[in-house]
């Protein structure tokens, strides 16, 4: 039983650490688009490993297979990118401030302008991209 507790504690601590890092990123990073990275990535893995720990815990405790936590995991993995995309789109729509040193200004302008394709300068990029 001892090493099972060790594995469980490892997963629980890993999950908690990732959740904490996600929230630290949310509080610490300087502009909205950078903040968006922290919760979408860190929290999916955080909740994922907590749910793995929960699955193991209840499977061993009740000595029967208990895998219904996987529903939450799958749901979060499907919805996290969708909600990140929607939030980014909403932020582009209301023209949220970006950091001054953000690169790719023309792509940002094109995305803000309502999703029209960018100007000629980027079409050169496209040709380069398809050659690669």
């Amino acid at each position: 039983m001892n090493w099972i507790e060790l594995i469980l504690s490892f997963f629980v601590l890993l999950g908690g650490l990732f959740m904490l890092i996600g929230s630290i990123g949310l509080a610490r990073l300087p502009d909205f688009y950078m903040r968006l990275h922290a919760p979408t990535k860190a929290t999916t893995l955080g909740v994922g490993s907590l749910l793995i720990a929960s699955m193991l815990f209840f499977s061993i405790k009740n000595s029967m297979f208990s895998i219904h936590e996987i529903l939450i995991t799958i749901f979060l993995f499907i919805t996290a990118p969708v909600s990140a995309h929607m939030m980014a789109k909403a932020a582009l729509h209301v023209d949220t401030d970006t950091l001054e040193r953000t690169q790719g200004v023309e792509a940002h302008k094109a995305a803000t302008a309502g999703g029209n394709p960018p100007a000629k300068a980027d079409l050169v990029n496209k040709q380069k991209g398809s050659e690669n």
Binding site: G22, S23, L26, F32, R35, L36, S83, M87, V94, T96
Partner: peptide, 12 residues
């Protein structure tokens, strides 16, 4: 500072 930040905070 912006509304989008608040939505992101609620999500987290």
């Amino acid at each position: 500072p912006s509304l989008a930040d608040r939505i992101l905070a609620l999500d987290t």
